[in-house]
């Protein structure tokens, strides 16, 4: 069952004031469904990260409606949004953002610990998810002892460990070579389709377009085209182009 998980309507966002003011989002509309891997693509500086941050509730829109899982984030206070994030969202960043002094298992357990689970339970759960991403023999490794691809898989495990219905990823493959990027995208797709999650991937890495079920193309702060099937995506972005 595919249901609408994210619904953005007529969102505005600008940075700075006066002369330095840059308008980034202009009456932007966007939607994404569960059970699919949605890609948000577009040239550098078009506003993808800004839109993602607004969906995550880490950035406030100037106007418009931001509805995630039926909740209006734009009408919630900062602490309520933080609580909402801790339960419902998983994050994967371009720079992995793992804490260097924690082991893989400890890093993965962080979202559960934030929710108030005990360390033992959290780390047991973390090991299961590390196993799922294929890192069962790296649970006690620190990030510095792992390759970029392995670190990003730890980050995926961290985004999944608390079983959030939505995973948000910003350029998850752009720090990786194509083989590792491929592996990471496979995992993300598996997370979306096997577990009926909404996975939203912001990227301009066209090597990964084949993994998308749904694609929103952005330019200059607006979604100018939405491709809703893999066939459509292949037609507009032929593999190897």
């Amino acid at each position: 069952m595919n249901t609408t998980g994210i619904q953005i309507q007529s969102v505005d966002k600008s940075f700075g004031r006066g002369q330095a003011r840059t308008v980034v989002l202009k009456k932007t509309d966007f939607a994404a469904e569960t059970g699919r891997l949605t890609m948000l693509v577009g040239p550098s500086g078009c506003g993808k990260t800004t839109l993602l941050s607004i969906i995550a509730g880490t950035l406030h829109a100037d106007g418009g409606a931001v509805e995630v899982l039926g909740q209006r984030l734009d009408r919630m206070g900062a602490d309520a949004v933080a609580r909402f994030r801790s339960r419902n969202l998983g994050f994967i960043f371009q720079q992995f953002n793992l804490i260097p002094t924690l082991t893989a298992a400890e890093n993965v357990s962080v979202p559960l610990v934030i929710q108030g689970f005990g360390h033992r339970h959290a780390e047991r759960k973390a090991r299961e998810v590390l196993d799922w991403v294929g890192l069962s023999d790296h649970v006690n490794f620190r990030p510095a002892k792992m390759s970029g691809g392995q670190q990003q898989r730890v980050a995926i495990a961290r985004a999944l460990v608390h079983e959030p219905p939505i995973i948000l990823c910003d350029e998850p493959t752009s720090s990786l070579d194509s083989e590792n990027g491929h592996h990471v995208m496979e995992l993300l797709r598996k997370a979306a389709t096997q577990k009926d999650r909404l996975v939203l991937v912001v990227t301009h890495d066209n090597r990964t377009y084949g993994f998308a079920d749904h694609m929103a193309e952005m330019e200059d702060g607006r979604i100018f085209r939405t491709l809703t099937t893999q066939e459509e995506i292949r037609a507009h972005h032929p593999p190897g182009s």
């Binding site: 880490t58 953002n97 934030i114």
Partner: peptide
Amino acid sequence: HFAALRAMGAS
């Protein structure tokens, strides 16, 4: 890292 914790929902 503190920002990441905040983003992951730490109050």
